[in-house]
Amino acid sequence: MTRSYEGKGSPEHWGELSEQWQTCKEGMYQSPINISHPVSANLPPLDFNFHTNVKSIVNNGHTIQITVHDEDDFLLDGQIWNLKQFHFHSPSENHINGQRFPLELHFFHANSQGELAVLAVMLTPGKTNPALDILLDVLPTTVHQEQALQQDMMLEKRFPQDKHYYRFSGSLTTPPCTEGFICLVMKRPVEASHAQLARFARALRNANNRPLQPLHGRQITE
């Protein structure tokens, strides 16, 4: 049995499909969550160092994933976090004050010790986003066929101007659901047209959002 988002391989069964995936069922710090009642910690806005150098794109059967060179980074907890890859979930996995968004981008970063931080950006219906058109033009039509990218990705346009965020301790939202991740969710969404959002949904073919997970007393800061 392989994992999926529906049927016998759906998220509620992931912990039963493999001994290595028990955390999906037993973990206490699982993602995604509904972000509400955050505690004020005066978190400073993120200071990004943006580049545009991407390597490849692939539809891996679960999401559209773009791999990048280790250039884009930000400073957090006195450490530099380098972007490794980003991918898409439609509809969004995390909610903000009970609101679900049509699309969520996950940017995976790692520090020099190999620890991971996941940065999420929500997309909401609005104006056409030129940065997304560049990506839509190269969306894979074949599953598991990785292709090199030569285009500049304009990564800064995929982030809101307001760089404030929510922070909590979370996990991978796919098996093995590993915990111990720093999870950051940008407070403000980025706009994309209805047509752009629909094209992403069609490219993903099926919804690929894990259901919300219990907080288990976790604190969300802002």
Rank of each mutant, 00 (worst) to 15 (best):
F200C: 04
F50H: 08
P140W: 00
E93P: 02
I35E: 10
I134D: 13
L204V: 11
D70S: 14
R210P: 06
V58H: 02
V121P: 03
F74D: 00
R100L: 05
N94H: 15
H13N: 13
F200M: 12
Q65P: 00
F50M: 04
A198Q: 13
D152P: 05
N82S: 07
L197C: 08
R167L: 13
A117D: 05
K127M: 15
F159R: 02
A198S: 11
L184T: 02
G126E: 00
E191T: 06
S171G: 11
L46T: 03
T52K: 06
H62Q: 08
F48G: 02
E146K: 13
L123I: 04
N208P: 08
L119C: 12
K8R: 09
G61Q: 07
E179R: 02
N129K: 00
K8C: 03
Q113K: 14
P44F: 05
K187M: 12
G7N: 07
M153Q: 13
K25P: 04
E191R: 00
F159W: 01
Q22M: 08
T173E: 13
N42M: 12
I220F: 01
A203R: 01
V118G: 07
Q65L: 02
L139M: 15
L119H: 04
C183S: 11
A110D: 15
V138G: 08
F86W: 14
R199G: 02
Q22W: 09
R158L: 13
T128G: 10
Q147M: 05
W14A: 07
S31P: 09
P175F: 13
V190M: 10
F50V: 02
